[in-house]
Amino acid sequence: MTRSRLLLTALLSLAASTVIAEDRYKVVRPVIIESGIAGQWMMQLGGPVRGQVVRRVEQGQPMRMTQPRRLKRQLAVEPQAQMQQAAYHPERPAVNAIEPQFLPQTLAYETKYKPGTIIIDTNNRFLYLVMSNGQARRYGVGVGKPGFEWAGEHKITRKAEWPEWHPPKEMIEREAAKGHYLPVSMEGGEANPLGARAMYLGSTLYRIHGTNAPWTIGYAVSSGCIRMRNEDVVDLYERVKVGTRVIVL
């Protein structure tokens, strides 16, 4: 009898240990996504998983999450490419990213101004080149940021290809106060903020020019100049001449 009881006790202990061991490996530890890296995780997720992450992060809750199968395969094959994706900054989108309405197009446009006139609608971020037959060529532009808006009428007094950039003294001082140190001058090229072409307006410091930051088209971001994508400013440059009338609204 004693042997039977000892054997039964041993069997029960063994079964309990097995259950405890199995339960231990069933526990899923929550992955807590800190606010600083949440954006990087969400760049790699999609569908309901991404929505779940967003809700949990906003509510300050821990998030149980497993990697999508597709992502696991990519990590196994392309670890370096995946690391680069995690370092992507959403505030600086892909170079070619632009809202469709800001792409060049020819459309109906009734105006009192003669063909060949440039009209810039700063509120809606559009530049119109008036054409004949009640039409215009429309381009998306970036305009002056708050405090740097302006309106008026000028003529194109000079045109330049891949222009040099000479930041005004006021701009250099203003940016230095923010900890941004601008060069006294910069030769033309792809890194130059004036981009591929520049059309100078009257005797002012304002220009219609290209940009090295095409993702800013459609926004109020400049110090008063009208900026365009490089391919768009080249197109406009070939269509206008010195003396063209420019109306800024």
Results as ranks from 00 to 15, higher is better:
residue 22 E to H: 09
residue 45 L to C: 03
residue 57 V to Y: 03
residue 214 P to V: 10
residue 246 V to A: 08
residue 44 Q to S: 09
residue 94 A to E: 15
residue 184 V to Y: 14
residue 187 E to T: 14
residue 19 V to I: 14
residue 165 W to S: 04
residue 48 P to L: 00
residue 236 L to I: 01
residue 249 L to W: 12
residue 104 P to T: 05
residue 31 V to E: 13
residue 239 R to Y: 07
residue 5 R to E: 05
residue 248 V to R: 00
residue 166 H to S: 11
residue 132 S to L: 03
residue 163 P to I: 09
residue 126 F to T: 04
residue 110 E to D: 07
residue 232 D to H: 12
residue 101 Q to R: 15
residue 43 M to C: 12
residue 227 R to V: 08
residue 205 L to N: 13
residue 99 E to T: 11
residue 249 L to N: 12
residue 88 Y to E: 15
residue 247 I to K: 09
residue 99 E to Y: 11
residue 108 A to M: 12
residue 168 P to H: 04
residue 113 Y to F: 15
residue 85 Q to S: 07
residue 104 P to R: 01
residue 26 K to H: 03
residue 169 K to D: 15
residue 161 E to R: 02
residue 47 G to W: 04
residue 234 V to P: 12
residue 186 M to V: 03
residue 58 E to C: 11
residue 74 Q to M: 12
residue 179 G to K: 03
residue 56 R to I: 02
residue 230 N to V: 12
residue 16 A to Q: 01
residue 46 G to R: 14
residue 214 P to A: 10
residue 132 S to V: 08
residue 12 L to N: 00
residue 25 Y to G: 02
residue 9 T to L: 02
residue 224 G to P: 03
residue 199 M to S: 10
residue 74 Q to W: 10
residue 162 W to I: 05
residue 231 E to S: 14
residue 97 A to C: 13
residue 96 N to Y: 14
residue 63 M to Y: 13
residue 85 Q to V: 07
residue 32 I to T: 15
residue 15 A to Q: 11
residue 233 V to A: 08
residue 163 P to L: 06
residue 83 M to A: 13
residue 98 I to Y: 11
residue 151 A to H: 09
residue 156 I to N: 01
residue 210 G to V: 06
residue 22 E to I: 13
residue 29 R to E: 14
residue 244 T to H: 07
residue 30 P to A: 01
residue 110 E to F: 09
residue 119 I to C: 07
residue 79 P to T: 01
residue 57 V to D: 04
residue 90 P to F: 13
residue 237 Y to N: 07
residue 7 L to T: 06
residue 162 W to P: 05
residue 211 T to R: 04
residue 40 Q to R: 14
residue 54 V to R: 10
residue 6 L to Y: 00
residue 222 S to V: 07
residue 28 V to W: 00
